[in-house]
């Protein structure tokens, strides 16, 4: 029983770390989704209520830059977690804890890439369309 204690603590620590990595995976797409909903909803309400569009547009552009920056940061941290530049292992198919850790970084990195592209594509209409028409 006493021999098991350190092992269990190690498992728990590992599990809690993987839990935070799992959360990290969802963060980039969540930011992208939130950015999408906020941009479209705010523009729709602005146009319906007749609010000052240039101000809302400028605010949303700043918000978009922050979102793109945030997703990029998540992507950068995921890239480091994946650590492919050092290990050279793209697939992490061995089932060790370290591989699981790298794989979650890999998945979070790819999701960050698609999320940053998505957020930029959602922002482009704001850049090019300057009115409610």
């Amino acid at each position: 029983m006493t021999d098991d204690q350190p092992k269990r603590r190690e498992d728990e620590a590992e599990f809690s770390e993987e839990q935070s990595s799992l959360l990290k995976i969802t963060m980039a797409p969540t930011l992208w989704a939130a950015h999408f909903v906020i941009c479209y909803a705010l523009v729709a309400v602005t146009c319906a209520k007749g609010w000052d569009f240039p101000t809302v547009r400028a605010g949303l552009l700043v918000f978009s830059c922050l979102v793109v920056g945030g997703i990029s940061l998540i992507g950068w941290r995921a890239w480091r977690q994946w650590n492919v530049s050092e290990t050279g292992d793209f697939i992490n198919r061995r089932g060790r804890a370290e591989d699981r850790h790298h794989f979650l970084g890999h998945a979070a990195f790819l999701l960050s890439v698609i999320s940053v592209i998505g957020a930029i594509f959602v922002t482009l209409p704001l850049v090019f369309i300057g009115g409610c028409q």
Binding site: F121, L124, P125, V127, F128, I129, G131, Q133
Partner: peptide, 9 residues
């Protein structure tokens, strides 16, 4: 997308 949005208005 950039080209499409530029001619959209």
């Amino acid at each position: 997308l950039v080209w499409g949005l530029s001619i959209l208005p």
